[in-house]
Nucleic acid binder design. Structure first.
Length: 432
RNA sequence: GGAGGAGUGGCCGAGUGGUUGAAGGCGCUACUCUCGAAAAGUAGUAUCUUGAGUAAUCGAGAUCGCGAGUUCGAAUCUCGCCUCCUCCGCCA
């Protein structure tokens, strides 16, 4: 959520930003409601002041019948205005919540995904002297993937992942935990990208997979609800990313500046209904209702937020490079970054089975947009209270990254070469 | 799931209808004292919204887990919810 005071002072820019993000909000209406609220609030406050004065007069002893009669009049007047205020406030807040975060000044304005900007292409697209298979075909040959039986048990877009592919997943997890738990590695990544950031390592976390409606909404991740799984008998949803439960950890808390940055590496199975994607990416593991993901999340001061975001993207680039996967770094345009984002970067990894780069990572910088509703603040050394800035990013979506490894590292005889960085995590094996 | 207990400021804790935004203590900050530190003393020390002011600041409203209600008046009474604790049941 944006600060209403900021909107009051920058109404035109906020409206333009919403247009650039293809968000349908009317700032004029919002500001009208804002004024209405304040007028009503003023009336209510005035009546409450009268009520308090009235009570004050009978302090210590019993109130006179006159005072009680006066009090009753005030009470009736309040009963008339307070519900109006409540109604208008609810309408106001509903509209305020719809206003998207301001895009960072360097985000390209665009009106479709096509206008995202490829910043850098890393690694060469592999050349095969045979026709490369897609990961579903490779996995089928090795009995690593069983979607048919999964569909009997759970429906479409579920799978049994088996054998060496499971070992590969755990190898990747351990690789990332070691890497992001190593301060010297983070320092190296920061230095190579000329980023002046903390080198604090990431703490691994297994978060809850379920989240309350109220908290999900405050994270601005509940919508679109069509995309979420709701638990019928409880006020709970299955999370769609560890971001949702990591970013909300400190709801209604005040952190101390000395604690920052707080950096987490969350591992969670994530759930998405994939509503409206019927028939899209049906083969293999690319788009599933359930997938495992390593996610990084951090809380920083405002002035460190942007560099943290750039570090997150640099970490993604570094890890893909370590796994020897050809990829593109894409700066997303205003249309594509998303409502709560100030800035967004994607990593698109080359998939020989599809012959194109596909999204495997995303890095989101939220500034204080999430923390404002989350009410997560930091006590600065000066004593001032400020909202924290949040960043989140994919470390690896395990399904998609294994697709990339299988397809890029396949051999003519249906084997898969293990990237050097992962060999130690697979008992020294060089081939699967 | 059943029975019982509890949730007050950064922390501990008093407070069961009327100068209680809230005693007292701890912590923290400043000052006094001291060569300095400690001790002691004095003072200060919540957040949000809103109005005035360049600002320091001042006025008003709200906040005692969350929400609703009773009342002239609610931290205090009633109802619902959440969380924690104890016991029973179930269970990886």
């Amino acid at each position: 959520m944006l600060d209403i005071r900021f909107i009051r002072e920058n109404a035109e820019a906020v409206q333009a930003n919403a247009r650039n993000k293809a968000c349908d909000v009317d700032i004029t209406t919002l500001l009208k409601l804002d004024t209405d609220c304040r007028v009503l609030q003023g009336q209510v406050d005035e009546l409450r002041q009268k009520r308090n004065d009235n009570v004050e007069k009978s302090k210590g002893g019993r109130p006179t019948p006159e005072l009680i009669a006066e009090g009753k009049v005030i009470k009736d007047q309040l009963a008339e205005i307070e519900p109006k205020l409540k109604e208008v406030s609810a309408e106001f807040l509903g509209l305020l919540k719809k206003v998207p975060n301001m895009a960072w000044p360097d985000v390209p304005v665009g009106h479709s995904e096509e206008e995202n900007v490829v910043v850098k292409t890393v690694g060469d697209v592999p050349k095969f002297d045979f026709i490369p298979l897609n990961h579903a075909a490779i996995a089928a040959k090795r009995d690593w993937l069983d979607k048919e039986r999964a569909s009997k048990v759970a429906g479409s877009r579920f799978a049994y992942v088996k054998g060496d592919m499971v070992r590969l997943q755990f190898a990747i997890i351990n690789f990332v935990m070691d890497l992001l738990g190593d301060e010297t590695k983070i320092a190296e990544i920061a230095k190579n990208n000329k980023l002046d950031v903390s080198t604090k390592p990431f703490v691994p976390v297994l978060p809850p997979y379920m989240i309350r409606t109220e908290v999900y909404d405050a994270m601005d991740r509940l919508e679109p609800r069509d995309e979420r799984y709701k638990l019928e008998n409880d006020d709970l949803w299955l999370q769609g990313s560890a971001e949702h439960t990591l970013g909300s950890m400190y709801v209604n808390e005040v952190l101390d500046e000395s604690q920052l940055p707080i950096r987490y590496l969350g591992y969670a199975t994530s759930f998405r209904r994939e509503a409206g994607t019927y028939g899209k990416d049906m083969e293999g593991l690319f788009r599933m209702h359930q997938f495992d993901k390593l996610e990084i999340e951090s809380f920083t001061t405002a002035e460190n937020g942007l560099n943290e975001h750039l570090l997150f993207a640099a970490i993604q680039d570094y890890m893909l490079t370590q796994l020897e996967l050809p990829h593109q770094i894409v700066q997303k345009c205003t249309f594509d970054i998303g409502k709560p984002n100030a800035r967004g970067v994607d990593m698109n990894t080359y998939l020989p089975g599809q012959g194109k780069y596909r999204e495997t990572h995303t890095a989101d910088y939220m500034t204080d947009y999430q923390s404002r509703r989350m009410n997560t603040r930091v006590r600065r050394k000066s004593g001032a209270l400020e909202l924290v800035h949040t960043n989140d990013a994919t470390a690896f979506a395990l399904g998609r990254i294994m697709i990339a490894i299988l397809e890029n590292n396949q051999t003519a005889d249906g084997q898969v070469k293990v990237p050097t960085a992962l060999q130690n995590y697979l008992g020294g094996r060089t081939i699967l």
